[in-house]
């Protein structure tokens, strides 16, 4: 087991995470599904310390930390082994494609410039963006920006990548190129925790579904079971909703 969170609580005025627990094994692609406002983004942000959970534990590489009291040093150490892909890319707007990827290596990790460049180019190649090294984010389409963001994540050689709806800010015709990159990563054995509304991706690529609603995990299942034969009432309604939306 690579990552385990237990009993995560988080409130903004009202409680939005009401004791969430989940596990991710090495090589897993876990898809977090759920209606809008159910707390999926908040959960990912708590796991990567972009929000502070009031309660809960996180076990990473067999060390357990208390989310409410974890030290800055531990946060930095864990962050160096994880990566985050945001819904709206969050590329560094004053940096080129190449610099966006090398920044975390050279500045964050003190890596030698030539080595960083080598790694960055390889990562950009993996997402098909190695032909735009000197472009600025504002010169790229959303899909291209998101692929650069994925390369930025890959370059740091993370043990797990968190994705928060990586395709939902994209025009429909650009979604495919990003999902294809993610599918390739999954096939290469990358561990991923993915919040998504892309049901085909969840169904065909993920190894596990975690269904959330109103700040709770309602059902955890393999994709086949979840989509064909969900147990919980709310999961059934959710799956029904998807099917009827498609028809």
């Amino acid at each position: 087991m690579l990552l385990k969170v237990e009993n995560v609580h988080k409130s903004f005025n009202v409680e939005v995470l009401k004791g969430i627990s989940l596990e991710v094994n090495k090589g897993d692609v876990v898809a977090i599904l759920g209606p809008s406002g159910s707390g999926k983004t908040t959960l990912l942000r708590c796991i990567n310390f972009l929000e502070k959970a009031e309660q809960g534990t996180l076990t990473f590489d067999d060390v357990t930390y208390d989310l409410a009291t974890i030290s800055k040093k531990d946060i930095n150490n864990i962050r160096k082994k994880t990566a985050f892909v945001f819904q709206n890319y969050n590329l560094f707007l004053n940096k080129t494609v190449l610099q966006n990827v090398t920044e975390g290596l050279i500045i964050g990790r003190g890596m030698d410039k030539n080595k960083a460049r080598e790694i960055a180019v390889a990562a950009l190649k993996r997402v098909g963006m190695d032909n735009r090294l000197d472009a600025f984010p504002s010169q790229l389409s959303g899909g291209q920006q998101q692929r650069v963001a994925i390369a930025r994540a890959l370059a740091t050689d993370p043990e797990i990548i968190y994705f928060d709806e990586p395709t939902s800010a994209l025009d429909p015709e650009l979604i495919g190129e990003v999902l294809n990159v993610m599918r390739d990563l999954a096939e290469d054995g990358m561990t991923m925790l993915v919040v998504t509304h892309e049901m085909n991706f969840a169904r065909n690529v993920s190894s596990k579904i975690v269904f959330m609603d109103e700040g709770e995990v309602i059902e955890t299942a393999d994709p086949e079971t979840f989509f064909e034969n969900p147990k919980e009432e709310r999961a059934k309604t959710f799956v029904q909703g998807i099917i009827s939306a498609r028809n």
């Binding site: 160096k80 560094f92 920044e103 975390g104 964050g108």
Partner: peptide, 30 residues
């Protein structure tokens, strides 16, 4: 300066001061 870049900076292992100096301040000066 869009705040998301600060979070992205944290996520790639940069410190607050590094993010300010290399990402936020250059954009703000512009």
């Amino acid at each position: 300066v869009p705040k998301g870049q600060i979070e992205a900076g944290y996520c790639v292992g940069m410190s607050y001061l590094q993010i300010i100096r290399r990402i936020v301040l250059p954009q703000a000066l512009r």
